[in-house]
Design a protein around this nucleic acid. Structure first.
Length: 576
RNA sequence: CGGGACGUAGCGCAGCUUGGUAGCGCACCAGGCUGGGGGUCUGGGGGUCGCAGGUUCGAAUCCUGUCGUCCCGACCA
């Protein structure tokens, strides 16, 4: 039984100054967590119970799916990460340290290498597969800017699983098993979430989905088709483009366009010069970028911006991408800032990519590669050719669903889970093979599956809190019932004590506010802030032989006879 | 890494412009009243004012540097 009189807990009346998002504010105020350093948090008893409840649910679902739990150290040697090249690839986000002999170590950001090596050390036959193993572990990332409290810390708790299969079909099956296990897990956690298509990204692999908990303070943006259910991270959103059916355009025609370095100024001039209506979407924007030191051009309709994240995610292998700067223009005198066109890209040595909207046969108004001159009727396929289409333009609400052409909505969310088919990258790098039926060595194929455990505490708090405090789903709450004794006589306290013990005997998890020195108002406020789903008040109503039962979420209050209180409360709680 | 702000008691803040005994609220301790919505009165304990230099008879306050933190952006399996 949790007793408020002795619990290591001091609720705060004021919001902490450094907390912006609701989960952070409330978890600190309600005494669940305390900041230790930037992006590093300690868990007080209430918070730790909540965290462990989530871990327990995850374990139960992983075990039920037949996955086995293992555990690795957080402190790891450099060598395996050297072999997979992640020691350098991971960049400055990797926490690195040296021991007294000067050897390099790291604090694990994810454990693909260790899992692969563990299985490699034990198994060497196709008969041993498939295998899925998982751990719940603290992970470390030296984020440039930790933020939003528990949501994005530098140390956090994560459940990561890895599957090992002989072939792609096996991987697909393992992936699906994890997907189902995740659905069960997040349902039990009482979360609202969407499963969205994601980019497998630099990790390689063919299929990847994210579990996103919609929430205005989330850091991920995704699109959702409310008609057919298509959902995708904006990076993975597929542009739907109707086939181009326009007539063959006239030949290119250069015209004077003084002082029109921006799309807006160009559109204004077009309407004056040629009669309208012309729109930004009639023009072609040539966005110049440096990709790993190489100049590239990306073509997007003039009314769209390039989404750098989206572009990079769709240009596999590119590590670093940034917009052209004045210094880059200086090095490429053929490129006239504000008047760039794709016609001369090849001549200028630019690699040319285009958003799928720049369909073959479409014609555009674009720069003439000459100051104060533009050109119209520039036609894709006739006047320029591209290396390939690449998803790169910003995604907007109202863009059409690639499945059913319905306008999509855009929403923000917290990423709480990510599953993806890794393929053979790690097994290859670490030389993990098994013998197949024919006695031949085969590189195994892997999947990797993560759940942000500590982040889930915050995500649930974000989705379930209200103005007055936290409001947990029962299975994750630190207790089922919060019993408050009020008054100055012994009777309510003794009664509450007895009631608490009887409810515990029935399997209920009980928190008892047995503080003699706190006023009723303080106890009610604390109970609401802490957010245990049911609150029982033993006080005034005792005079009529009753206690009061409140539902934290709905704020409904009912009085029940003390004589039947245990079974009445039990019935209400278990029905929830 | 760019832009902005802030470091004073466990938490929230004032004091700094104009240098002179470090203050308020919450929390904490002792006692009284109150006892169904963070109630009230009296009395207390707790801070090398982020750190290091400098100016000055004297620095929380002025100057220089440095470290840290938060917010927006960039970045983020």
């Amino acid at each position: 039984m949790l007793r408020m009189s002795t619990l290591l807990l001091r609720t705060l009346r004021d919001d902490p100054a450094d907390a912006e998002v609701a989960s952070h504010r409330l978890l600190v105020r309600a005494g669940y967590v305390r900041r230790v350093a930037a992006g590093i948090y300690a868990w007080l008893p209430l918070g730790y119970i909540t965290l462990r409840n989530i871990e327990r649910i995850i374990r139960e679902e992983m075990d039920a799916a037949g996955f086995q739990e293992v555990h690795f150290p957080a402190l790891l040697p450099r060598e395996p990460y050297e072999q997979t090249n992640r020691w350098s690839e991971y960049g400055p986000d990797l926490f690195r340290l040296k021991d007294r002999r000067g050897n390099d170590y790291l604090l694990g950001p994810t454990h693909e290498e260790m899992f692969t090596l563990m299985v490699k050390g034990e198994f060497s036959s196709y008969k041993d597969l498939p295998l899925s193993i998982y751990q719940i572990q603290n992970k470390f990332r030296d984020e440039t800017r930790p933020r939003s409290g528990i949501i994005r810390g530098r140390e956090f708790v994560m459940k990561d699983s890895y599957s090992f299969d002989l072939d792609d079909q096996g991987l697909a099956t393992s992936y699906e098993k994890h997907r189902q296990a995740y659905i069960k897990t997040f349902n039990r956690l009482g979360m609202n979430y969407n499963i969205v298509a994601a980019m497998a990204g630099a990790m390689g692999g063919s299929r990847s989905e994210e579990f996103l908990a919609p929430c205005p303070t989330g850091e991920d943006t995704y699109v959702l088709c409310e008609k057919c259910g298509y959902a995708a991270n904006v990076e993975a959103m597929v542009t739907s483009v109707p086939a181009y059916s326009g007539q063959t355009p006239a030949a290119m025609e250069i015209f004077d366009s003084p002082n029109t370095p921006t799309i807006d100024s160009l559109v204004e001039l077009l309407n004056e010069k040629f009669g309208g209506p012309y729109q930004a979407s009639d023009t072609l924007k040539n966005v110049l970028l440096m990709a790993d030191g190489e100049a590239i051009s990306v073509l997007v309709p003039g009314d769209r911006e390039v989404d750098l994240k989206r572009l990079q995610a769709n240009l596999p292998g590119v590590q670093d991408i940034r917009l052209f700067e004045d210094a880059d223009f200086a090095k490429n005198p053929g490129l006239v800032k504000g008047y760039v066109g794709p016609q001369a890209a090849a001549k200028l040595g630019l690699r040319l990519f285009a958003d799928p909207r720049v369909v073959m046969g479409s014609h555009w108004i674009t720069g003439a590669n000459e100051k104060d001159k533009h050109v119209r009727f520039v036609t894709h396929g006739r006047d320029f050719t591209i290396e390939k289409f690449v998803e790169s333009a910003e995604v907007r609400a109202g863009d059409t669903c690639p499945n059913c052409a319905t306008p999509v909505v855009i929403d923000r969310a917290i990423e709480i889970g990510h599953i993806f088919q890794l393929g053979r990258k790690y097994a290859q790098a670490l030389d993990f093979t098994v013998l197949d039926k024919d006695g031949k060595s085969q590189v195994v194929t892997m999947g990797s599956y993560g759940i942000g455990v500590s982040r889930a505490v915050a995500a649930i708090a974000e989705q379930t809190h209200d103005e007055i405090g936290l409001c947990w789903p029962r299975e994750v709450a630190p207790a089922d019932i919060h019993i408050v004794a009020t008054g100055k006589e012994d009777l309510p306290f003794d009664t509450a004590e007895t009631l608490a013990k009887e409810l515990e005997a029935q399997g209920m998890r009980v928190m008892l506010d047995d503080r003699r020195d706190a006023s009723p108002g303080v106890k009610f406020k604390d109970a609401e802030l802490i957010g245990i789903p049911f609150i029982v008040i033993v006080g005034k109503a005792l005079a009529d032989g009753k206690v009061e039962l409140r539902n934290r979420k709905s704020a409904t209050k009912t009085e029940v006879e003390l004589a039947s209180a245990v079974s009445d409360i039990l019935a209400v709680v278990t029905a929830s």
